[in-house]
Design a protein around this nucleic acid. Structure first.
Lengths: 198, 198
DNA sequence: TGTACATCAGTGAACGCGCGTTCACTGATGTAC
DNA sequence: TGTACATCAGTGAACGCGCGTTCACTGATGTAC
């Protein structure tokens, strides 16, 4: 009896919490966060419909966990991009990359009415992401160092990458933009820095 | 018997279609497009719960009408702003103004899975808005006139205003940004044009 | 190594709810003559 | 001006559905001795 078999067959799933979160991400990618149902997740996980409530108090609890996971992943992605390239532009590309490769997390993260926005873990993760973003902006030479200029630069950078990601995920762009979001994003974002991309 | 009384009391409402659309915008502003229910709208309009279906085949039909109305309003707003100021920057500010003053329309317009995206009226209205946007971009001197540059400029402008509007509506910005979206948007967008705002 | 017991994860039946949609109907309106 | 009739907007009862949540339960696991 292999480990996998044992895990699958045992009365205690052993892994259910993370399996449910994966199933949630998948379901949200397919039908949107608003249509998520705990019963559907239980079905996908092959488990009784009351099981999910054991791990996440309720539906909003599950979405809170998913949003927190998303902010953590985003913070990691941004920090890594900045360390490896030292470039705010590339950090922006990484933001878009995260959004398009984790559409479900991204959708939930910015739908604050679906989860508990005051949850401790969530707030901590979100703050990590926010800090990563402003660190990237602070490193950009053109930003100036005054408070006001830096804040505006931060909002502008966030707005352009967030808007690009949102419109891309919503299939709002004309089809001639291509199918590689990172590439298109790089060309678009570079306009903000007045560094026309080759 | 005043006109208003007659309208309210008559068996035939006379105005129901537009009343329901207003009620829908209000309900969406309060609880989100995903939580909209036809029965709730009927309640708000003081009418039997089956009445809405008479005017809009079904729920998606209502949301299609709302999205189309939104794209029309947006197209008007953008065109007017461009005519009055000749400035792409001000057209961007107008985009943000539209989004923050018509949050329900804005939300529905970019939730394509909620309505019939191939509806004739909808497509026509959306095309009007798209044309208005690219006209604004075309008038901007810095954009260059080559196809590629113009397209990138268009995506960049759209991304930054859309991202700003989305983040603003989602209460994602820190509170020190203030409470007047147009003002903050003007300062942010102007960074894209390298025209630092006073 | 074996036994007793506490803890915990998952079960399945049951509940009440609000929803979208259908359908035969009724009351009002407008048009033809 | 009056009458007949077609059309249309809104009614209200009924349907079936999937949902979240609760709760007593059962099976597995781990720990103390």
């Amino acid at each position: 009896v292999s480990d996998a078999d044992r895990v699958q067959r045992s009365y205690h799933h052993g892994n259910l919490r993370s399996v449910i979160m994966q199933a949630a991400a998948e379901a949200i990618r397919e039908t949107g966060a608003a249509n998520l149902s705990l019963r559907e997740l239980a079905r996908r996980a092959g488990v009784s419909h009351a099981a999910p409530a054991h791990h996440f108090r309720d539906k909003a609890g599950l979405l809170t966990a998913l949003a927190a996971e998303g902010f953590d992943l985003l913070a990691d992605t941004l920090t890594t991009a900045l360390q490896q390239t030292g470039s705010l532009l590339e950090m922006g590309v990484a933001y878009v990359h995260f959004a398009t490769t984790h559409p479900a997390h991204f959708e939930v993260m910015f739908s604050t009415d679906l989860y508990h926005p005051d949850d401790g873990d969530l707030v901590a993760s979100r703050d990590r992401a926010t800090r990563a973003l402003s660190e990237g902006v602070a490193r950009t030479p053109s930003a100036g160092s005054t408070g006001r200029e830096a804040r505006l630069a931060s909002l502008a950078a966030w707005s352009i990458v967030h808007g690009f990601a949102t419109l891309w995920l919503g299939h709002a762009f004309p089809s001639d933009v291509g199918s590689q979001p990172e590439e298109a994003a790089r060309a678009v974002i570079s306009r903000l820095f007045d560094q026309p991309f080759p």
